[in-house]
Nucleic acid binder design. Structure first.
Lengths: 259, 259
DNA sequence: TTGAATTTGATCGTTTTTGAACGAAAAGCA
DNA sequence: TGCTTTTCGTTCAAAAACGATCAAATTCAA
């Protein structure tokens, strides 16, 4: 049994402070005191230091973070309707990756789950247009290549004509693509034409296209189309995908795995 | 049969130290002492050696690993040197920005301060290779364009040949550039050649080049050069920049503002 | 084995960090 | 406004950690 009565090192504690501030945006001295189990004097001193460093701005009663946190929409809110499925799909996708491959991840929650699984894989090269995925892998793990372009706020991805400049210069073995909808008739679609544009280029160039999409995306059609179903080599989805539909997909040359 | 009560050899012990540090990210002297069964003096001496080798950073009470995949102790250090100055420099830089301009921010702590000031400016377009700056502006504010490329971990910036693909397609009115060093003789330099490469392209293309650098950067020369001083239109620095040096800079056609 | 060089551990004065105390300043409330 | 409560900054003392020094122990080479 590990005793936790050894106090944290000062920089460690300040790091936690920063983190707490970032998460809530603001925090009161007294709450920080209780959480970190030190005196208010220490908290004040730490905040003073962090203020010097520009990380934090002190206010009466507490402090506010100067660093903006990028909220993670996936792991909490509405998306966790299908979080289970997405996690499993991501794990299945992970098992498809071989050593030293170059892979592409587009934006979306499912691919973000996959990104999380890649944090230890230093052998890989990950190309992505997802800011979230890049952040996930920024500190460690695979070589990360971001494609440039305009940042689309709502999805936190880089999109638009500029993205093609980088995409033209790299080749990925496997492209793991999330999508807003896939459909026998209309192929792969998403809401934003710019997003679709980037996806389209990747789908054309990648060695394999692996679609990661839970069953709720089946037969859904959105505004902007970016690929035929035929371009998809493999669909990884969940068990709720009906056998008939799976059969139909296979008829089109799309391998299907449900997990 | 190897006895375990024979004390480990010094290099062997230091190796274990490194490993323990790597695992936990941090460790306190006292815990290390107990685990390795040597005196605190020995631990301190070992840590001193490892610090000189750059493997470890000592802090009061223990040490933090520099080679762990945790956090950003390096980036950390840089920021806290002159946060006050950097904040002021950033504010001065902010006042130079006009409506509806397109500006460039490279990586570095000073430009990050500037990025924070731009969070409300929806009229601007910000082009950047800094992941941190992009995160700051991801939720609101200016239009953000990231240049693509390989993510350089230590600075959290996108660098390398791929960056030029996007840079070639955009034009910015003003480029706000941080640097590791500027020097009358050697111009602008930074540590990483890839970083320098991107900076160089920007410096060539931008309408104006505005250098943001506190006085500690003066006459400092790093490995990779990316621009002549003559290309710089304006230097914003702090009051510690000597008047003689300022004069010399002006002779070279560089306007100087100290705040 | 002897002697020199290196490493280790203990001691001690100094520095750093921490928490508590207390008057001053700010915020809340009537 | 005037009063109370909370928070702040400063000062001070105790505790912990540090660096320097020196002696003992160990290692290495001759």
């Amino acid at each position: 049994m590990i005793q936790d009565n050894t106090p944290a090192l000062a920089p460690q504690r300040r790091e936690r402070l920063r983190q707490m501030l970032r998460e809530g945006g603001v925090a009161r001295v007294d709450d920080l005191r209780k959480t970190l189990e030190v005196s208010v004097a220490t908290i004040r001193r730490d905040l003073e230091i962090l203020e010097e460093e520009g990380k934090v701005r002190r206010v009466h009663g507490g402090a506010v973070s100067m660093e903006s946190r990028l909220e993670e929409p996936v792991f909490e809110n509405k998306t966790n309707l299908a979080a289970r499925e997405k996690q499993r799909i991501a794990e299945e996708a992970y098992s498809l990756i071989e050593s030293d491959e170059a892979i592409y991840l587009n934006g979306g929650s499912t691919t973000l789950f996959l990104a999380r699984l890649l944090r230890e894989r230093t052998d890989l090269t990950v190309v992505t247009n997802s800011l979230q995925a890049a952040i996930e892998l920024a500190d460690s793990g695979p070589r990360v290549i971001l494609i440039g372009g305009e940042l689309r706020r709502i999805s936190q991805t880089m999109v638009g004509p500029l993205t093609s400049a980088v995409l033209a210069q790299v080749h990925v073995d496997k492209a793991f693509m999330g999508t807003m909808g896939f459909c026998l008739k209309n192929g792969l679609t998403t809401t934003d034409p710019n997003e679709a544009y980037s996806n389209e280029i990747v789908a054309e160039q990648a060695g394999q296209v692996i679609l990661l999409a839970d069953s709720s995306k089946a037969e859904k059609v959105c505004f902007a189309r970016f690929s035929d179903l035929e371009k998809v080599d493999l669909l990884v989805s969940d068990k709720n995908l009906s056998p008939e539909y799976t059969k139909e997909l296979r008829k089109r040359g799309v391998k299907v795995r449900t997990v």
